[in-house]
Nucleic acid binder design. Structure first.
Lengths: 278, 278
DNA sequence: ACACATATGTATGCTAACGCACATAAGCGT
DNA sequence: ACGCTTATGTGCGTTAGCATACATATGTGT
């Protein structure tokens, strides 16, 4: 958690790392607890038509799922938590239920970019399955919720036997690569407003909530633009009554409208993500 | 080959598709043949300290390599050839020797972006290994040369048995994802000139040649910028005597200088690519 | 109620890259 | 040698997004 906050705020270079560290832990945990308490189940998740479980795991045949169950542990992931850092050993992998994990690439202290988003359709920690112990990509919790955690050792076992999980992870790898490629092109060609709309929709899909805590500062790192750019784009979306936001909480008011503002990339990525499990 | 040229020139929307098709086949093949004839072994490949073989295959243990050999066929790949198109079934996979294959993502008729580059360190057609028959990413020959071709059916067999190739392809998948992520960030944050320098260096590494046929038009699609932008950036590099070019042929004059002009991304990607095989 | 931290808005000037239009140049086929 | 095609250069107005600086607003703890 400490590490999480440290990274989360690393961009603010004016304050010394240690100060950073302390204040941001407080800030993050504080913010989270507050929002959770203010309104029970703050996220306003819509009535769960489907129970919030990881769809990748849910697709496994029963016997295989049973075999894996002892190795899986439900854990809570909190916004801002850093699951693994660039270059560090990956100790566990995560199958999100209703949480979201961002895969982030960094080219400099202040320039980050989300290259992929992992929700209940996938797993964070693919490098382990691929036989690599660390990655240059950072995994940061972008939406609070639960996930199923599995040790890297257990994942490495799965890499050695071709079973249902093995095959599913292959399909997922392809899906993720597609997502990363599509958003690379999207980030290159599309305007900030469209990309913001896409990002909010993707988050909405995975979180199953209409409102979620996110500052513009955080968003700016996801989209790879300045905070002021997010302010402008978000302001435009709010003016159009598509979203509402205040002090780190964003609420989606009009999904259809957001879809119209977003680029095709949203639909393309969603189609890929939704169909690979079939 | 027809399809190749069709796609290669698709951006020129002023000419009808059929005209396109015919003229561009001629143009491409013509250009290639001309350059090949003009000077025997036009590419001026540097003295092959290492023989030009696919390094992924070369890393296999001997017995496994022998097992695969009957399934591999050496083929010639020609600049502009389209190995598989977005959405179409992938019939074969390719292990480049001294050829290069570009993985390209498209967001509109005129907006393309190279998301990954495959040389002798890898394989084009990973989706097949991952159990998917087609991909939204296009594979286009970006540098002429030879490659080892293997049928998709044979690759699917390999996906079902965990052997050396299986493990290597896992490692390669991770390497490719890293490359795609890094260039996504690079394309987002770095200037055209730096990206062009990086791209030329990466091509130089894989082609093993100082001079290679490439128009600015082609380059613009790789970098996801306008042709005029390439003209400006290439002009600057030429003014600095780092490269020389004329009518579709680029020559690298000063590698060190290019490395200085490029961003760190070149070194980062190269390190990943060079070390995953060990 | 107040002070404080932090989230968000906004203004100004700047630059890279865009879109369009056209000029030049180099090679090729006849 | 000539004309054609194609590759490359360049100028001009526009724009999205950057950097910096500062203003405002909104929760929170005391």
């Amino acid at each position: 958690m400490c590490v999480a906050a440290q990274t989360f705020l690393r961009s603010n270079a004016l304050i010394s790392p240690s100060i950073h560290f302390t204040t941001s832990v407080i800030r993050l945990e504080g913010e989270y607890m507050r929002t959770r308490n203010r309104q029970d189940g703050f996220l306003n998740r819509s009535a769960p038509s489907a129970p919030p479980v990881n769809r990748l795991l849910a697709t496994l045949p029963k016997n295989e799922y049973k075999r894996l169950l002892p190795k899986l542990k439900t854990v809570n992931l909190v916004l801002g938590e850093l699951l693994y850092e660039s270059g560090d050993a990956i100790k566990d992998v995560y199958f999100p239920n209703d949480s979201i994990i961002s895969l982030i690439s960094e080219v400099s202290e202040r320039s980050w970019l989300e290259v992929g988003m992992v929700g209940n359709e996938g797993m964070a920690g693919l490098p382990v399955f691929m036989g690599v112990s660390s990655s240059s990509i950072r995994a940061l919790v972008q939406g609070s919720g639960t996930a199923m955690r599995m040790s890297s050792a257990a994942v490495r076992m799965e890499a050695n036997r071709v079973g249902s999980l093995h095959r599913l992870l292959h399909r997922y790898s392809h899906s993720l690569l597609t997502q990363v490629s599509q958003s690379a092109a999207c980030n290159r060609f599309h305007l900030v407003e469209a990309r913001l709309a896409r990002w909010l929709l993707m988050t909405n899909d995975r979180l199953g909530a209409e409102a979620f805590p996110l500052t513009q500062e955080f968003l700016s790192h996801m989209l790879g633009v300045r905070r002021e750019g997010v302010s402008k784009a978000a302001g435009a979306l709010q003016a159009g009554k598509l979203i509402r936001y205040s002090r780190g909480v964003i609420t989606i008011l009009n999904r259809r409208g957001l879809e119209a503002k977003s680029c095709q990339c949203y639909a393309i990525i969603k189609a890929e993500t939704d169909t690979y499990l079939n």
